[in-house]
């Protein structure tokens, strides 16, 4: 009879000790999902690097036109005006070589769902009076209890639909414009472009450093997680997993404090005395002025629609 292999001997020992494969614990899944969410939402810059028509325009001009557009959308009153406005972000997305799936995944789908959920009650005559055009429930008679009132026929009203459509168009058009800006512009460029708006330099410095070190700590957390995974042989108790996560949070905190101390020293070493100073960029060129003019003309035309 041949000797059992090394693997077999180990598996026999593991079985005798009641060890189970590590599997995928909910703690691990949560950590991975969290890390992936932050990486996706904050640092996905691949779309911003594509050679789209609008990526060639200075980010400052992109921020400026987005702000102008948002003001214009908020001033629009009628459905045709809002519909005309909606064309602009929808055209900007393919011009920036952003795929519809990426656009929806970046938050537009969530925006649609939540906007519809918010707007839906306003369409019913339960909350606001109006002319019912789509009856849903016929109670036969009205019901009143103190300040509460239910009409005999509950349904969708014309006025409610108009209100909901106005809200949805305004909200989703604005969200689309902001998403276009964030998908077509890298964080670094976005932060640099904000200087153009004369925001306090220290505020921009702090935001920039927050983004920078969130990334550094995120990477560190990912590495810690992978380090643990590489040495996790068998399944551990949930309580032990939670204790580990707790200890790592404390370690990350400690590490971030240490890093903060070092960053502060590095800043002092290069002459920082508490007053942030930032470098300005060159003034607008033809593409920037062109985009600005196009958006102004478009918004004016949309208001006349």
């Amino acid at each position: 009879m041949s000797e059992p292999s090394r693997e077999q001997r180990f598996l026999d020992t593991a079985a005798s000790r009641g060890l189970r494969p590590a599997g995928r614990t909910h703690v691990e899944k949560t950590l991975r999902e969290l890390s992936s969410f932050f990486s996706r939402s904050m640092f996905r810059e691949e779309t911003a690097r594509r050679p789209g028509l609008l990526q060639r325009v200075d980010p400052r001009a992109r921020i400026l036109v987005t702000l102008l557009f948002l003001v214009s959308v908020s001033l629009a009153r009628s459905i045709p005006e809002l519909l005309a406005h909606a064309i602009l972000p929808l055209a900007a997305i393919p011009l920036s070589r952003i795929r519809p799936g990426e656009f929806l995944g970046a938050g537009f789908l969530i925006a649609i769902v939540f906007s519809v959920l918010m707007a839906a009650p306003a369409t019913l005559n339960v909350f606001f009076d109006g002319t019912v055009i789509i009856p849903l429930i016929d109670n036969g008679r009205e019901w009143r209890y103190g300040p509460y009132f239910l009409p005999a026929v509950i349904g969708i009203t014309r006025e409610g639909l108009l209100t909901a459509a106005t809200f949805l168009l305004r909200a989703l058009t604005s969200v689309a414009a902001v998403l276009w800006l964030t998908l077509s512009t890298r964080w670094a460029d976005l932060l640099r472009a904000l200087r153009f708006f004369r925001l306090p330099a220290i505020f921009l410095q702090v935001i920039g450093m927050t983004v920078r070190y969130t990334h550094a700590l995120l990477r560190h957390s990912e590495e810690t997680h992978l380090g643990k995974k590489s040495r996790t042989v068998c399944r551990t108790k949930v309580a032990a997993e939670q204790a580990w996560v707790g200890s790592r949070i404390a370690r990350s905190w400690e590490r971030s404090l240490h890093l903060m101390e070092e960053v502060s020293m590095a800043m002092s070493a290069r002459g920082f005395t508490g007053e942030a100073k930032l470098i300005g960029g060159p003034w607008f060129g033809a593409p920037e002025w062109g985009l600005l003019l196009a958006v102004v003309l478009f918004c004016t035309g949309a208001h006349l629609a």
Binding site: W187, A188, L191, R192, G208, M209, V211, R212, Y213, A216, L259, E262, V263, M265, A266, M267, R270, G271, F272, T273, K277, L278, I279
Partner: peptide
Amino acid sequence: DAQLFNPTVEDEIAFGPLQ
């Protein structure tokens, strides 16, 4: 990582002269 605290490489190099 402690030394590079600006949004871009260009900003990083400009930090000292700006101060």
